[in-house]
Design a protein around this nucleic acid. Sequence first.
RNA 1: GCUGCUGUAGCUCAGGGGUAGAGCGCCUCCUUGGUAAGGAUGAGGUCAUGGGUUCAAAUCCCAUCAGCAGCUCCA
Length: 955
Amino acid sequence: MVRYNPNEIEPRWQSYWDEHNSFATPSLTDSAQDVAKRYVLDMFPYPSGDGLHVGHPEGYTATDIVSRFARARGELVLHPMGFDAFGLPAEEHAIRTGEHPRVQTQRNIDNFTRQLKMLGFSYDWDRVLATTDEDYFRWTQWIFLVLYDTWFDTEMQKGRPIAELPIPAEVTAEGDRAVELYRDSRRLAYQDDALVNWCAKLGTVLANEEVVDGKSEVGGHPVKRIPLRQWMLRITDYAERLLEGLEELDWPTGIKKLQYDWIGRSTGAEVDFYLQSGNRAGDDATGPFVAWKRDRATTGFPGETQEDFLRVYTTRPDTLFGATYMVVSPEHPLIDRLVTPEQKAEVNAYREKASFKSDRERTDGDRAKTGVFTGSHAINPADGRSIPIWVADYVLAGYGTGAIMAVPAHDIRDFEFAVAFDLPVIPVVNPPADHEQRDDILAGKACYVAEGEAINSGEFNGQTTAEVKSALTARLSEEGLAREAVNFKLRDWLFSRQRFWGEPFPILHEIDADGNPTGIKRAVPDDQLPVTLPDLEDFKPHGRPEPPLAKADDDWLIVELDGKRYRRETNTMPQWAGSCWYYLRYIDPKNAQQLIDPELEKVWMPVDLYVGGAEHAVLHLLYSRFWHKVLYDRGYVTCPEPFRKLVNQGMILGEVEFTGYTDEAGKPVSTKNVRRDADGNRVTKDGKPVTTVKISEDDVEKKGEGFVLKSDPSIKIDSRAFKMSKTRGNVVNPDGVVRDYGADSLRLYEMFMGPLEATKPWVMTGVGGVRGFLDRVWRLIVDDKADELQLSDAVVDEPCDEEQLRVLHQTIRKVTEDTEGMSFNTAIAKMMEFSNHFTRCETRPREAMEQFLVLLHPYAPHIAEELWRLLGHQESISKEAWPQWDEAALVESSIEIPVQINGKLKAKINVAPDASQDQMIEAAMGDEQVQNAIGDKQVFKKIAVPGRMVNLVVK
RNA sequence: GCUGCUGUAGCUCAGGGGUAGAGCGCCUCCUUGGUAAGGAUGAGGUCAUGGGUUCAAAUCCCAUCAGCAGCUCCA
């Protein structure tokens, strides 16, 4: 008796594929031009010490199916894998144990590789790469130097070589050093004193997006804001291009929207408010203000801001008449000019406090508005009214101009602030007559943010919001007081980290004879790349915001070049760097001369399918697109966007858990009587603490919407699946699943769980279910009663009967269409139906079995290979062509259709599939059951949909 | 608060204006000297709720409820 034994079959076929190099990427350049290429890419993993979890193989199985399917259809496939191997965990391990991060990283990569091979993925393993490989990060550094060598020409909307940057005459006049500094101020990679998130515990600064709730995303340590000299990448220059590029992409709309929102383009106007000297609110504002205004009318709107006015950005210039005060951020450059002596102490105290506030404190709680009056006033250019200027931390220094005109009647934040500090509220937009709060709004007691008709707005009264917007902006522009403006939420990318385990920056800082920096930088020459990491004795951060690389010996740190001495840059790049461009290197992974051979780039790019988790929806994909556009502008790649189609696989949760609660006496408490108190602890309605207890599935039953305790149906039970985590102890390990069920079962189950994009809980009995399916497939072909592996007697060299042929071709069509549409779960369901049908057949024509195995092989490659071999084939099934379905075979000679009376099903009749409407109605009227249903009523209308149904309307 | 997604059999999910489906689980029966056994039958659904459009709504539209995920002072 030979049973299906994946533990024996699977390693054997994996070795076979290895030995025969079955999935080597075909060379595109010598292939016929008319053959389609398909570049199928997974987001490469960070090789953690925990190994793969079952979430990884979800996306990997999907891409593997697509790749094997494409090959079977004659396409040329590139399907590579690699490792995003720089990162904090390896460095933290090194700090703890003293073991070099490279050692641990390699060990983890080896383990990941073993696990990936165990699952039978058809990667081209000759192209594997890790971002930590020196001949990989050599090119990461090289791309950084391209960024360093590029400036963005706003006119042309294009990155250009820094040598082509026009230098103003006055700069040239100041000499070479000034020219160099001017260039530095325009490079895409530049240094700046940034307020950074310094995490003392991790010993590094973090990007904003790595800080969650004021704590580090990794480890949850406290984060403080300090100023530090950092490398920045000018991604904001590409904001418009990054937006435009999204349109053409075949990405989920949700992800596109996230990127749109992240970039956050808004249009509005910049408006200048004349500053009154001192605190003479409203008295003689007219004189100097009128003079200033007259001046502006001739000189126009200045490009740079000056001391005598405060510039704001607003998306609602139409509400200018409603601006009753102004607010500057605590970090606003004009603040010292604005604060009057009387207010100085209070403002300074407020600014001090704000600077120490962590992001957590700033955003925590109910966000009650805080702020302090500066003592100064400005004049509203719309009507010449004098309004006070406040400082408050709800205005952000980094957005717009760092100052706002506050219109409390029509902005919620301004309204809250005005209420808190008793500032006037003047409505200037009339809400629609049927608006619930209309009276309150008009009385200045409520806030209205939508559009409407202008009121209290002088000559603009009665116009719509859109009309006022353009008319008022136009008038102010003419007067030189405003201009149309576009703003982005996107910020420049903080690109340096104070860590050891990352790519060193290929930058040298010139030092003088005493070892002090002169302020001049230069790039490490191409032929001296890569800049490798120095050998260090230990990897501990020193608790100061100075990178570990600064501890390196002088023979690494100090470089002499062309007679000058330099000190190496000691920051390292963030983990994003290596993942920004790996998809390019897979195409030409061993090229020592260049990043990528342009010929190969041209044929393989863009990536046709990119699959990964939605957690990378914004950052990785935005950063990658940014680098790609720079490389595009500089002529190193030929397509403007790297990833044509993107699919996010959903998260796999742990098994569903049932949770109940007990009170202090141990008595069960129904879920509906449990609340969370202010601290997030679970308590009863009257505030007594409850204990959370896990409940077995056997002890609960379904009742209505939810679950209740079997022993006491009045007790409601929570049921939900949680994210897999070590602390919860619900992590499913692929090694165990493969051992117990086989890799094919794991692959099949991951795909059968539900749509790829959906979040879904793991159900171990479901794995048993698909294993049962594979067992049946095995018995379909193998004689499981025989002592030796041999074909079942039922497999015969005869043609299919009509029904078998129809089932076969239905299956071919469904599996083909669903695989193409990445609807893998439904394709599998159809294959299950196929095997159920043929299990019931006494004879199973060989032809049907063979075609079925070809359909199955992208999903369960090992068993398909094994059975294919048993059917007498010497060549791997992966070389077999995908079957075609025959439309003629799908047609049934007679079909059953429903007959409805007034839309309710009353009978079924058999008709030819191509029966006309008249024929169908005739057949329906001739049916006995139909006649009975009609009885003595009159038929008003007869509706027949060919091939579908008949409906009779009677009265 | 905002945005997005989801409510179909006990579970996990297909379907989608015109016959309510699959796998697992469950009931009953049969086969089996080789047992993580196999086969055959069957039960089980107010398609979340309420309106609307239609000859016909689980499907389309509106509202409501519930769950999940992400974002959040961007003027």
